[in-house]
Amino acid sequence: MSVVLEARDVTFSFGQTPALRGASVAVEAGEILAVMGPSGSGKSTLLHCLAGILVPSSGEVLFDGARVDAMPETQRSSLRRDRFGFVFQFGQLVPELTAVENVALPLLLSGVHRKQALPRAGAWFARLGLDGLEQRRSGELSGGQAQRVALARGLVAEPQVLFADEPTGALDSLTGEHVMDLLVSAAREQGTTVILVTHEARIAAYADREVMVRDGRVNAPDRIAS
């Protein structure tokens, strides 16, 4: 298997507070990697650096062999728009738009015509068990439904890498596991690489592998032979 995304000795500080102090991690194509760690360990910062949202103060981030950290903001934006997908903890749906429009948003942003974008978005509703909710607004969806819509939005543009930042953090355990189940199935089906940030072991257990972030460093345990 080949490495699709890699951070090498990445450091990053918020003002005087260091968040990452030399974090290194490599993600293989098609892999589902859980990034674990206590609050404030820097796991979200690591995700942001990997996704090209934040630019590390030193170190390298490589995506498909290209230096993400060296790209200008516009290029990183289009990378995020076209090659990456995102699922956040909550509140990423635009309240004015209907669920199906929210899902179609990444396609529209990439310039797909509305006539093509909406049916493509609509196809995800059946897949994630959201039939009949296409015209709802985010305020009219339950937490689990909203996260599934968010998942559809993250995957609709068929990204190479899906970044999921505590995707079940605002859900109860049963709903959270349901969302994770769908996420893993969909990602496997599409061959999408997933980087899953979570502090919950049961959620991390859906991944193929986990790394621990502690004090701004990545602690990758050796693989345990079964």
Partner: peptide
Amino acid sequence: LDTQRSAHLHRMRELTEIKR
């Protein structure tokens, strides 16, 4: 502790796979 955690997680992955 880390080693133990890894072992635990490994087992949890197996159980999750069984569950799925």
